[in-house]
Design a protein around this nucleic acid. Sequence first.
DNA 1: TACTATT
Length: 443
Amino acid sequence: MKDHDAIKLFVGQIPRNLEESDLKPLFEEFGRIYELTVLKDRFTGMHKGCAFLTYCARDSALKAQSALHEQKTLPGMNRPIQVKPADSEGRGEDRKLFVGMLGKQQSEDDVRRLFEPFGQIEECTILRGPDGASKGGFWGAGGAPHGCRHPLHGSQTMPGASSSLVVKFADTDKERTLRRMHQMAGQLGIFNPMTIQFGAYGAYTQAIMQQQAALMAAAQGTCLNPMAAIAAAQMQQMAAFNVSGLVAAPLTPSSGTSTPPGISTAPVPSIAAPIGVNGFSPLPPQSNGQPASEPIYTNGIHPYPAQSPTVADPLQQAYAGMQHYAAAYPAAYAPISQAFPQQAPIIPQQQREGPEGCNLFIYHLPQEFGDAELTQMFLPFGNVISAKVFVDRATNQSKCFGFVSFDNPTSAQAAIQAMNGFQIGMKRLKVQLKRPKDANRPY
DNA sequence: TACTATT
């Protein structure tokens, strides 16, 4: 039914409304199809926008690849179709050998002759330095099962080499990338846990911790009204803006004395609750006589004295401070207070996208941000039904962009207003509506 | 660096 050397192809950039039956005609013109499967989500059955395609004949696959790959764009797609051997075809991995300790003057042909007895050689390249001199290694191919030493390994010492021949499986792309990252990480010290907390992004980490404290306050205080959630989120915003460098006041989480600019610098009372190791205070129990809203102020940001004789309700104070702050930074703050829904529990991620106008594309995320941090960051603006940071499949490293979906457009707009241009370190977040699938349709 | 896929 199918040739033994048939190639399974991965097909990407397929509109989600096209099923196998729609795709078949497109691919059939290159040969008889053995199998065509649109990829679906295991749980939701959702069309993933890609497929696997196997032709009966290897040649058909090659023809389809060269005719279609990056050559044509299916209706409604922004990028051209992808047609290439599936990862499962194992190209490039498990079949490439590294050979070290070659003689400086050995050529590709010498090496080919050496390895010919072990099987057909696909490719053989000697790695050379800038001066053209051999660096003593080459990439070749030849059969030896994993876990087994190649018969040539250590078998002989080439003229001029300092030790015997080295033959092993070459690093995969992933291994190479990881190795490079480790080298870089070593220079930057970013794999040191201390610097994750207190290094380049330390201030931002603190802001996140404060946000979490604020969210805890909003979620746990059963007596809190929606305004508390707003105030909590706004407090966090202030903290984050401190971090951004837009605000001169130092952010000292444990000091409890930072104040946003433009806000009363009257003496701030010390925080009664014990300061946790993370720099924010645990919530005081409701029974200790504290007002329910007090936890909001335990983030180390306390814009107004709680005991001020002129204003009784701390929440009112918080809101006043928030408006005051919003007045100073209208572009960043104006729309939030209107658009704030009540905090809701995090919905488990099953649905990927919200309705049109509810899905955000976020760029310039810090490298260390994952789905959880992205969720945290956007939770203050509404029900986050999905938050996904895109990661490189080979390295598991963030690509520094992601998607956040809300259940309503108002939240999405509020998030854009507040977070677009939000400065983190040297970068500013870009937060905008995800491009609609149909690029022609204005929204 | 730029818009979610590799059973």
